[in-house]
Design a protein around this nucleic acid. Structure first.
Lengths: 133, 133
DNA sequence: GTAAAGCTTCCAGTCAATGGAAGGTCAAGC
DNA sequence: GCTTGACCTTCCATTGACTGGAAGCTTTAC
């Protein structure tokens, strides 16, 4: 299977697939004409990568997950630990964004949003104390 | 004021402050010895940048906000629009992370997390259908 | 035969810094 | 006066995970 078909099958851009090869995540064979040739197994690994990347695992985490996937004797607990750590990180990120959102909301609410040049958002960014709304 | 003091005053690393100068966001003067010399106004701009970056505005958005800040005749509505767009992006990101989190939770829940080699998380990543928990 | 699509490699750029090397300057202590 | 260390300078490389583009093959379609 050529890279274009692999790209279609995995929903990954060809560029990304070549990049994954560059960093050693997949090792497709080569056809006589020099084109990359993806086996079903290669495509499977690419799908694995697509799914785990879309779940927010970093490339290095994906590398570990793949090696655990390859390791017939791995402990299921090892994988669970990685996933749990990822959930924790996601939770932290969500909390951070929510706090950010709250601050932005306050700023927008206090801003009259018309053609006048005075703007409470800029005042806040500049560190000036805003009048209470 | 030397860069170290400016860094302390703004809670930004010196490296970052030099970078902001590189990309034209602040233009400190120079002392006779070649050291950067930050005026109160410079420090003020740096604080503005620190605050707006920490609120999730990109560098380019900060550049626009600063130019609006400099522009005595700007309309408050322009700033409000930028902030509202940012809120929308933050909302999208939060929703995405929450969906991600839900998926990870399901995976972890279905995983027995012991020393056995079979692992529903890897099965899912590999695209195999998991047995319902 | 020729044009387009698809493949190859290689290099540069993205974003927002961050790290480090090589070297100049300054203040304190002896 | 000398040394030590902190602080400053510039410049270049690296991060993460791709993405874009150029130059040049091969294959496919008509």
């Amino acid at each position: 299977m050529n890279i274009g078909s692999a790209a279609e099958a995995t929903n990954l851009p060809s560029k990304t697939i070549r990049y994954y090869e560059d960093i050693g995540l997949v090792k497709p064979g080569r056809a006589d004409n020099g084109y990359r040739d993806y086996s079903d197994e290669d495509v499977h690994r690419l799908k694995f990568l697509q799914r785990s990347r879309s779940l927010g695992f970093t490339i290095e985490e994906c590398r570990i997950l793949l090696s655990l996937y390859d390791d017939e004797s791995r402990a299921s607990a090892d994988v669970q630990t990685i996933a749990q750590e990822k959930i924790k990180k996601v939770d932290e990120k969500i909390a951070e964004l929510q706090s950010l959102r709250a601050t932005l909301k306050v700023l927008v609410k206090n801003c009259h949003g018309d053609q006048r040049p005075d703007c409470p958002i800029l005042d806040d960014l500049a560190g000036r104390k805003a009048k209470s709304a």
